[in-house]
Nucleic acid binder design. Structure first.
Lengths: 257, 257
DNA sequence: CATGTATACTGTACGCCGTACAGAGATTCT
DNA sequence: AGAATCTCTGTACGGCGTACAGTATACATG
């Protein structure tokens, strides 16, 4: 996985791109018309990433897909970081936002987690993009608004509301990254996790003294057998989500008391 | 951040390297003696990563640091993935393992989390290395053994014990990745988080209709003000660790009942 | 002691990336 | 008509992991 970063450039250009607000006056523009729209570019790039992974999304490749020379893409997008921003914000904008408000916060939080998980499942490459400086476009804003509302009415103050949401989404992202890492490792080692795990277990048995690591060997064997590998993202999600919600529940209860 | 992956190659070679077990018979070896040890190579690579980040750790650079030509490094290490494995396992081996057993699982789990956090703080680049297929060397084994013991005696069965530990460590890693991403973004945008948020907030105010995103604007402003961007990762840890522990507590209580 | 061979090591080369830069062609203003 | 401004193309650079071929070294065997 190459070095992909979002929001690395000038905020003014990035926001102009995401919100579709031209920086220069659009009337009386000289020179040839643009042949493509940001939405089209995002769609093409997303399709490529979905089909062949984020590594396949190069400036050259996206340009080619649009029938452009590599450098022409830079007239549409300041750089690769902004292209990634655009891709992410486009996906955020298309996420479902239909959770009923009348089922209690726990059901709503579960829906938020599941929706995010579905996004990562449909577009695994999104898990690898750092989001400490997220693409502040209409998609992210709508997502953030919706997800905050899901956790509103729990009695948490605004700062804790944000922290609780971040905590929940961070958990989902961790699971998604684990899943994406698994997939990537499988791809470039030509072994799936179970095969890798088994091969290593056999070899480890020759060099490792079980008496030195009694708990590790016991638990490792049990866990490995249970989930067919060292780690399993689906299991981690199913185990972890109730834990995260219980943890938030304790905070909510303690706050409302 | 470049494409760094651990454990991509042949498990037999990787394990031989990590455990110091030569694959070929060591007696009567022809040709020149090796001039360096795996431990020395790991130390040099770790020092470089600490000082200049994981991107600075290239095969060329590590070789140069050892006084070797780039390709000579491949006689010590099968490839870059295995070099990373070696670096990680070396750090794992050096982690503190001194938590008293008599203070309750919550104190022990907190110590485990804090120790991992300290590792990420001392070596931020470790947060970026995927560990779904961890380096199965003596360092990781000792770490795993120690951390499992910290959570033993909680009444959880072996599979859940492993899941609980994974859950806890995943949380710590998420915080560390956030911190590392922040640092990287700061480096290559020449703006710290506070400056970046402020610049974007001003620009957003011109394109965004607050009436469309009332909760987002309110909570976003409160959260942004409260944590000033830069303290994000620390804040997330301090908020999140009690949540994670409460979540595990609920499971433990429910299991022991 | 001479010679063969396994090993450590060097130098060169390849394909790939993001993107800086210079110039060509198209379109609309004055 | 000509200038200005835009889209778009082609070339080039430095850096990455590492494949491959060749050289120097030190031991095993005769």
């Amino acid at each position: 996985m190459a070095s992909n970063r979002s929001s690395a450039g000038d905020p003014a250009h990035t926001l102009a791109l995401l919100w579709g607000v031209p920086l220069a006056p659009t009337a009386g523009r000289r020179g040839p018309r643009k042949a493509h729209s940001p939405a089209e570019i995002a769609a093409v790039a997303i399709r490529t990433a979905d089909a062949e992974g984020l590594d396949a999304v190069t400036m050259r490749r996206v340009a080619q897909e649009l029938g452009l020379s590599p450098m022409a893409l830079y007239t549409y997008v300041p750089g690769k970081a902004e292209l990634l921003d655009l891709m992410l914000d486009t996906l955020y904008a298309a996420m479902p936002r239909s959770t009923p408000a009348d089922q209690g916060w726990r059901a709503r939080a579960t829906a938020v987690a599941d929706d995010n998980r579905a996004l990562y499942a449909a577009h695994p490459w999104t898990a690898a993009v750092p989001t400490t400086r997220p693409p502040l476009g209409p998609g992210l804003m709508a997502k953030y608004e919706y997800e905050l509302r899901a956790l509103e009415g729990t009695g948490l103050d605004d700062v804790r509301l944000d922290a609780a949401l971040t905590h929940l989404l961070g958990f989902v992202q961790t699971c998604a990254r684990t899943a994406a890492d698994e997939r990537a490792a499988q791809q470039d080692s030509a072994m799936n996790d179970e095969q890798w795990w088994e091969a290593n277990a056999d070899l480890l048995a020759r060099v490792l003294d079980p008496a030195r690591y009694p708990v590790a060997t016991r638990v490792g064997a049990a866990a490995g057998q249970a989930q067919g590998g060292a780690y399993n993202a689906d299991h981690a999600y199913e185990f972890g989500l109730p834990r995260v919600l219980d943890g938030l529940a304790a905070l909510i209860e303690q706050t409302s008391r």
